[in-house]
């Protein structure tokens, strides 16, 4: 009886802290990830991120695009509290990356998959690698086993559980890296150029998995990429240039900003390029054509 009483008090306290965390100082409901006036510099001379503010809601699928050196990867590390902002604040689910005791709460919630699959795998057996994260959190053995099952199933790699990652393809290795992150049961999956070293097939696999996680498990997806065609179907696009957020909008809105995109050093999808050229030559096509299929449909509608 005494124990259940104690548990009840804890439960109330837990609920209270969860609710309190969900609001900011002014009492407004907070987004899952909230960056406010964040700046960061590696060498204290030039800023990799300049006065950047953005917010990402729970369950959203957003993309960050930008050219090399635009601060994309720095942003990924900020989301995950791998680096602390020099100015401003990064708040994830109510936890601030400024506080040392919050670091692991943030890292638990935000999983990052990096560019090179090879350099993320710690162990020589797939299941040992997936177990690495949960082991760090001090989770019980049986629960770790369940998490490995879950994580490998989520990336369709159950058959490789006892294999060595050495002989897998790049795409498969990256799937293992994703599984290693999923074993921590994160709310947010950040893909930091996770597809850039893969062949087209591997890229498709990884994006498909992110899509599936978002749809089936409600995982928030942040895809950081310089392949602009990947942003089709995303909810929000953040366009980065020299560490600054220069644009934020839906993919359709983004693709209308042809000059802005090109000034960022990015290349539009081929279908959009062709549509734009046709429009310039007087063929009446609607705005926001992103895929070849859509271009084909619109062309067939013409008389």
């Amino acid at each position: 009886m005494r124990y259940s009483c104690k548990n009840f008090v804890f439960l109330i306290y837990y609920l209270y802290s969860q609710i309190a965390n969900a609001f900011d100082e002014k009492g407004g409901l907070m987004a899952l990830i909230e960056l406010k006036n964040v700046s960061f510099s590696y060498d204290k001379k030039t800023d990799a991120i300049k006065n950047l503010s953005l917010s990402i809601e729970r369950g959203e699928k957003v993309a960050v695009i930008g050219h090399n050196g635009s601060g994309k990867s720095t942003l990924a590390k900020l989301f995950n509290a791998l680096i602390k902002p020099d100015g401003g604040s990064v708040i994830v689910d109510g936890f601030s990356s400024d506080k040392k005791e919050d670091l692991f709460e943030i890292r638990k919630r935000v999983g990052v998959v990096f560019q090179n699959p090879e350099n993320q795998l710690v162990a020589s057996i797939v299941e040992d690698d997936v177990a690495f994260g949960p082991e760090n959190l001090g989770i019980e053995r049986e629960e770790i086993g369940k998490r490995i099952d879950f994580a490998l199933k989520s990336v369709d790699m159950e058959d490789f559980r006892f294999r060595s990652p050495e002989r897998l393809s790049g795409g498969q290795k990256q799937r293992i890296a994703i599984a290693g992150v999923l074993a921590l049961k994160p709310e947010v999956l950040v893909l930091d150029e996770a597809t850039s070293m893969l062949d087209p097939k591997g890229r498709k696999e990884i994006l498909g998995i992110a899509e599936k996680l978002n749809r089936e498990q409600g995982t928030t997806i942040i895809n950081i990429t310089h392949y602009i065609e990947e942003i089709v179907g995303y909810k929000k696009i953040f366009l980065l240039k020299d560490g600054e957020l220069v644009f934020c909008g839906t993919p359709e809105e983004t693709f209308k900003k042809v000059d802005l995109i090109e000034s960022c050093g990015l290349i539009l999808p081929r279908a959009t390029q062709i549509a734009n050229k046709l429009k310039r030559n007087g063929i009446p096509l609607p705005d926001g054509i992103l895929t070849e299929e859509r271009l084909l449909v619109e062309l067939c509608k013409l008389k």
């Binding site: 692991f104 890292r107 990052v112 560019q115 040992d128 949960p134 989770i139 770790i144 490995i148």
Partner: peptide, 23 residues
């Protein structure tokens, strides 16, 4: 590689042997 691996390990909540369990 070592740098990237360290980042990846940090991102997966590595904090030394403290309260770490073994699968």
């Amino acid at each position: 590689r070592a740098d990237e691996l360290a980042d990846a390990m940090d991102a997966r909540c590595y904090a030394g042997s403290k309260k770490r369990t073994k699968y």
